[in-house]
Design a protein around this nucleic acid. Structure first.
Lengths: 198, 198
DNA sequence: GTCTATAAGTGGATAGAC
DNA sequence: GTCTATCCACTTATAGAC
């Protein structure tokens, strides 16, 4: 190897992403100005424009970089046999992904109105439906599909937005996984995979 | 009665609220300008300022006027005996409230970041916890409390944001109530009210 | 009760020097 | 790769006429 790759490209780009995400998550996208981002980095607005074409471009790049794990999870899940065990594993991995990209997911959940207007795949809904597709067949009855949706919402609830309910982050995650597991189990058996004692 | 009350006060105030809510829900709070609201009503910005002190004041007034039913529901629920039947009735009534003030609740769900900064009781979380307090005792274990939270989230999911899951609004509401009912039933029996066949 | 006019400021974005 | 300087559209909000 002839060195550590000539293009470390300066880490400014990543520092911008990091600071921008913090501010976006804290105050919302619209209320965060480029001036504010630049100030916190001790550079000027014009410097931002060297690295990113527009404000929206900053957000898009963060989004693309951080959602890869979830996309990989969806890809992985589609290759597995649709057993209950697979589905429970998806829940566990998804929960872990949420933890890893917490500020981004929190931002996405709290700024849906903004994201709807931007050209970013607004992901919350779309990815959710991809995941639901892994959990239950597309022709499953409505309550069954909704059960799957609710399972993922329970995970989201456990990871952010529920400090009010108390407990540590780990405890909340464990509790969420328990509830999500019950919902998916109910949905799974309802699809006729293994008729339960009903 | 000496007439229909002197102060109809001009319905302009209400028309402003109505148009503003539409736009807020459609585009988000920050992206909606007073000019836009005024234009759609064929009045000028200054006219808005006659009826409301600030932009935020418009939103506050909408909020106050439309969330009364939920506050009343919480009040009602607190006077009832905490039976399972009471709790299921709370779910039904809450679902109906959501339907009645759909644009507002959708707005609140999609603009959490904005609401956090405004001086409005951001209600989504606070009201949710009030309702949870009706459903399970404050000292209930974490998974039990989280089950109650998830039940309300399921109702929200059924009312808005889930066109992707298919079905009519009525069908989604019925399915949501079913799932929410299951979660609350589990939480209820878990608190020792009536040990189930477990 | 609604208007015109304008204040005072912020936003995103660009040109061009260094 | 980062800066200075600037543009201009647009924002909330106010003063005061009608």
């Amino acid at each position: 190897m002839s060195g550590t790759r000539p293009s470390r490209r300066s880490d400014t780009r990543q520092r911008i992403q990091s600071v921008a995400l913090d501010l976006f998550a804290e105050q919302g996208y619209e209320k965060t100005s480029l001036r504010e981002i630049a100030e916190r980095l001790d550079v000027t607005k014009a410097a931002l424009y060297y690295h990113f074409k527009t404000k929206e471009d900053i957000l898009s790049s963060i989004y693309a970089d951080m959602t890869r794990p979830v996309d990989e999870l969806i890809g992985w899940a589609r290759e597995q046999p649709p057993t209950l065990e697979t589905k429970l594993e998806v829940l566990r991995r998804y929960g872990a992904s949420l933890g890893g990209a917490q500020p981004l997911f929190r931002f996405m959940q709290e700024n849906q109105a903004t994201l709807r207007e931007l050209k970013i795949r607004h992901s919350l809904k779309e990815r959710m439906m991809d995941l639901v597709g892994v959990m239950v067949p597309p022709d499953a009855p409505l309550p069954t599909r909704l059960r799957a949706v609710t399972a993922f919402m329970s995970l989201h609830a456990g990871v952010f937005g529920l400090d009010a309910v108390g407990g540590s982050a780990d405890e909340r995650m464990a509790a969420s996984l328990e509830i999500a597991g019950e919902l998916i189990t109910a949905a799974h058996t309802a699809t006729g995979a293994e008729p339960s004692s009903r």
